[in-house]
Design a protein around this nucleic acid. Structure first.
Length: 965
RNA sequence: GCCGAAGUGGCGGAAUGGCAGACGCGCUGGAUUCAAAAUCCAGUGUCCGUAAAGGACGUGUGGGUUCGACUCCCACCUUCGGUACCA
């Protein structure tokens, strides 16, 4: 009882907070300053909370508790990202319905989070799997479906800045007369092609092991699935896509308006990958019809190909050029040209060949009979290649000649057209002009196939060869443009191409549209009906589910096993769910794909503001008050995926007038990963060489924990005290089950209590930094909390009562100074999120005051308040012990008095030639003269016999004597 | 390859142009104890010196700027993270 009993204290106060709804934020709109502090909500996995979760959660909790005490309206919610693969996989293995597993896991997570004493407003708890939640996820999908992007719309943002490009209701899409003339079906497909949510037959990442299609973002560089590391192959399937590319420009530009780590902004910019260059048309001749086959696959060269002149005549080129200068550069390329995209139009004179992707629509048209067999074979192989194969072969360039040539528009030179898979159909125009002299990949290809290399840029450094030089330089061998610098050349040639109708400035993005459908059961169903014809086949026309009929819930099914085919489990749902007849008699079938896990997490921060609204996804007034999120803390792994998708949805809803802020998250902080403890990772062999245990024996090198007290330094190695042949590499590694170095938060709380876990995770180091776990570090903060307890409580008494040293007496000047220094430091540190140093300052306070025989109540009370955001349970207990009967959660945050900080005397360093040679006490308000006089006396011995050259003195701060001799 | 972050005692870290190593861990010695745990007190960068006084060296490496550099500039090395034929 008398000792610091974390468990007694913590369960007492958790029950108290629960019963009193201490942290409930009133529903609706508030008054005055607000803080919306948000954690990235967890996926409730079967293995429970990981120590990484409480790291960010504690940081937001400290800020939330601090701001509440500053009189700010705080919203600090928590919920569950509960759709997703693991629950479904588990269901397949055990036969337990994913709903059962999910809600069981949620209960575990909720218990664990409550055990840590986070000040969440649990009345706002949401789960993405709740029909009342995903009803609105489906509703937002319908908004995307009913929206098109108008790139020319000019409008003013809420900040008054002019913007271009906006999502608008599909009903406002202007229909061209010629489309309207073709009837309702034409109008409908014209609209469908422009919706932000659309269907596409494009090749996708199909993962047989997971039985689903994946987004580009979910496939690793090695062509494996991010989850499970299974192989992924390419397949053409009908899928739902979201037109995120329409928002590429705004997603990049509006990053400037948010307070995010520069590294995350850069990651997003790189992911979107904007590049500025030019599109240029290369003439390939007007005799296309002869070579173009109507039969067979559009991509493969056909048997009907006839060999006509593979090099367009200069006469036809001149005629084409003439017509172009009259008509200008057409929006879409005709089949008499090969259109390329380049960021280096200044190297046009060095283009010695061209390359088109194997999937390029002009493959058949350009292949001559002579090369048909080789091209056919090459394209067939390319189509079978998975991304893995493509990456594997990245080092060696492959390709095949089509037999045709195009004419370089700037110099009339014929250039051969090749097919190679290093050119991607999905980027730019799927075709390039190759400038081997100034592009690494083109050079490699040219060298492999013996193609000519023409240098057209002179390197500014004469030591550097021009061939292989890819930077900016001076133009050579470029006719009238010789001598221009690269940037100037780019501008001039782009303008010239434009006037001649041969090219134009163009912007390209690396970002692709977002593949939004999955072939899984445990996800949100799409609110979409497909129209069927009399025979029961899809007509290709779709109808959105009426908003009043939402949510579309999941049908009850026992078997959701993937069948190894891309047929989604929902296509085996009961007919009553699958089919319906519309009022007009049309047979309808439900969309059987489901949404990806990102869907629910894309907008959850909006729902927290108004979680029980059954009329709208969020009330506009409430949104206006609480948004944007003021502080968002989570792992860096979401830097591009979740954070990009959320921003996209947010902007669409903003454009449609549902939201008032263009960006969802004002300030973002990434917590650093917590690594496992030091492990045995190597040993010394008989010759004394260091051998990595992992390489020598990967299985055995996984999980040997080492007590730091057994480690000694020997030369440049750390070794075990009793076994100097065993070398310790103190570099910590990621926690993982296979390494056996996972720390379970339950065990830590069991042994030391929640306050110790919270405090330790904050004390480890800077929030954003990667840091290794240390059990003795946890004991350290536990001991600190024990000292705090004994500073206030009587440790020997049978009951809980104040220590007799705690007295109602006026504090000394020194005690007051200590208090006010601590208030200032802790407050400033919380504002900077420098929570590790804030804790240090409280330790200093305890070290100083805890040892004193008389500890005035009036300085301990503010200290308890300072401690409360970090160790809330202990602080509440001490607060009560100090005689307060109400929670301290809303007590005013202590203010420091600058006047109390000043000391009468300060000790300052005295330097001679920049080296500290002495110290001297000077009055705090000493002027420069006094400071120098006192300092001179302090280092008199050092100055003796030397010539004083210069004296630098900051009054009451430092003195430096510069001497000679 | 490219982009980003970081290198400080035995360990986690502090100091953002002015006393390097706050705070914590670990370690050493002491108090308390029959003993232990717990707690408390003192010490603890390295080297020389006598466990003093005192001195030298010291923030990845090499240069530079400055009266003064962990901090700013240039080059390089190492580690970690991201990314990868994006024309």
């Amino acid at each position: 009882m008398p000792r610091y009993d974390a468990h007694r204290i913590e369960s007492k106060w958790q029950a108290d907070w629960d019963a009193n709804e201490t942290f409930r934020t009133p529903q609706g709109v508030g008054n005055g300053p607000k803080l919306y502090a948000l954690d990235m909500f967890p996926y409730p996995s079967g293995s429970g909370l990981h120590v990484g979760h409480p790291e960010g959660y504690t940081a937001t909790d400290i800020v939330s508790r601090y701001r509440r005490m500053c009189g700010v309206n705080v919203m600090h919610p928590m919920g569950w990202d509960a759709f997703g693969l693991p629950a479904e996989q588990y269901a397949i293995e055990t036969g337990t319905h994913p709903r059962v597993t999910t809600y069981k896991n949620i209960d575990t997570f909720r218990r664990q989070l409550k055990m840590l004493g986070f000040s969440y407003d649990w009345s706002r708890e949401i789960a993405t799997t709740d029909p009342e939640y995903f009803r609105w996820t489906q509703w937002i999908f319908l908004q995307l479906f009913d929206t098109w992007y108008d790139p020319d719309c000019v409008w003013n943002g809420p900040d008054g800045r002019q913007r271009t490009g906006k999502g608008r209701p599909i009903a406002e899409l202007p229909i061209p007369e010629e489309v309207r003339a073709q009837g309702a079906d034409a109008v409908r497909s014209y609209q469908d092609e422009r919706r932000l949510a659309y269907q596409s037959e494009a090749p996708v990442n199909w993962c047989p092991a997971l039985g689903t299609v994946l987004a580009n973002e979910e496939v690793t560089a090695e062509g494996k699935s991010e989850r499970g590391n299974h192989p992924v192959e390419r397949r053409a399937l009908r899928q739902w896509m979201l037109r995120i590319t329409a928002y590429a420009e705004r997603l990049i530009g509006e990053l400037d308006d948010v307070d995010w780590p520069e590294s995350v902004k850069l990651l997003q910019r790189n992911w979107i990958g904007k590049s500025v260059g030019a599109e240029v048309d290369f003439f390939i001749g007007g005799d296309s019809v002869a070579r173009f086959s109507k039969s067979g696959s559009p991509n493969a060269p056909s048997a009907g190909a006839t060999d006509v002149s593979p090099v367009p005549s200069s006469a036809s080129f001149d005629a084409w050029k003439q017509s172009r200068s009259a008509s200008g550069f057409p929006k879409a390329p005709g089949d008499d040209v090969l259109r390329v995209y380049t960021t280096r139009p200044d190297t046009l004179f060095g283009a010695t060949y061209m390359v088109i992707a194997p999937e390029h629509p002009l493959v058949a048209r350009l292949t001559t009979a002579e090369h048909r067999a080789a091209v056919e074979e090459y394209c067939r192989r390319a189509s079978l290649k998975s991304d893995l194969d493509r990456t594997d072969l990245a080092k060696e360039k492959t390709g095949v000649f089509t037999g045709s040539h195009a004419i370089n528009p700037v110099n009339g030179a014929p250039v051969p057209i090749w097919i190679a898979d290093y050119v991607l159909i999905s980027y730019g125009t799927g075709a390039i002009m190759a400038v081997p002299a100034h592009d690494e990949r083109d050079l490699e290809f040219a060298q492999t196939f013996g193609l000519p290399v023409v240098e057209v840029v002179q390197s500014p450094d004469p030591q550097t060869s021009n061939i292989g030089f890819t930077g900016d330089g001076i133009a050579i061998h470029s006719g009238e443009f010789d001598g221009l610098s690269t940037p100037e050349f780019k501008q001039r040639i782009t303008a010239r191409l434009d006037t001649d109708g041969l090219g134009r400035r163009a912007i390209n993005f690396r970002l692709r549209d977002w593949l939004f459908s999955r072939q899984r059961y445990w996800g949100e169903p799409f609110p979409i009906w497909h129209e069927l014809d009399a025979a029961g086949n899809l007509t290709g026309r779709v109808r959105p589910v009426d908003a009043a009929e939402l949510p579309v819930t999941l049908p009850d099914m026992d078997d959701f096993k993937p069948r190894g085919t891309p047929e989604p489990p929902l296509s085996f749902a009961p007919d009553s769910w699958l089919y319906r007849t519309a009022e007009d008699g049309t047979k309808l079938k439900r969309e059987t794909n489901s949404m990806p896990q990102w869907a629910g997490s894309c907008w959850y921060y909006l729902r927290f503001c108004d979680p029980r609204n059954s009329e709208r996804f969020i009330d506009p007034e409430i949104e206006k008050y609480w948004l944007p999120v003021d502080l968002y803390i989570g792992g860096a792994e979401h830097a591009v995926l979740h954070l990009l998708y959320s921003r996209f949805w947010h902007k669409v809803l903003f454009d449609l007038g549902h939201l008032t802020h263009p960006e969802p998250f004002r300030k973002l902080v990434n917590q650093g990963m917590i690594l496992g403890e030091a492990e045995l990772t190597g040993f010394r062999d008989a010759q004394g060489n260091w051998v990595s245990a992992r390489e020598a024996n990967p299985e055995k090198c996984t999980a040997v924990k080492v007590d730091l007290s057994d480690v000694v330094k020997q030369g440049e190695w750390l070794v075990l005290k009793d076994h100097p042949e065993i070398v310790i590499e103190s570099r910590a590694q990621k926690m993982s089950k296979s390494r056996g170095n996972v720390i379970n938060p339950d065990e830590i709380v069991d042994k030391y209590g929640a306050d110790s876990l919270r405090l330790y995770e904050m004390f480890m180091g800077p929030l954003e930094q990667v840091k290794p776990w240390s059990m003795s570090g946890v004991e350290g903060v536990f001991r600190f909390l024990g000292r705090v307890w004994r500073m206030l409580a009587d440790d020997r008494a049978e009951d809980v009562r104040l220590n007799e040293a705690v007295q109602d007496v006026p504090p000394t000047e020194a005690q007051l100074r200590t208090l006010h220094k601590t208030i200032k430091a802790v407050t400033d540190d919380i504002e900077k999120l420098s929570l590790n140093t804030a804790i240090s300052r409280m330790m200093e306070f305890t070290n100083e005051i805890g040892g004193q025989d008389v500890r005035p109540k009036s300085i301990l009370e503010p200290f308890v308040l300072l401690l409360s955001p970090f160790a809330p349970h202990l602080a509440e207990e001490l607060w009560q012990m100090l005689g307060h009967d109400r929670t301290l959660a809303y007590e005013p945050w202590p203010q420091y008095d600058p006047a109390k900080l000043v000391e009468s005397e300060v000790e300052i360093p005295v330097q001679v030639n920049g080296k500290v040679r002495g110290r001297v006490k000077v009055p705090a308000h000493a002027d420069q003269q006094t400071t120098i006089e006192l300092a001179t006396a302090a280092v008199a011995a050092q100055l003796e016999g030397k010539q004083l050259v210069k004296t630098i003195a900051l009054p009451a701060k430092m003195v430096n004597f510069v001497v000679k001799g």
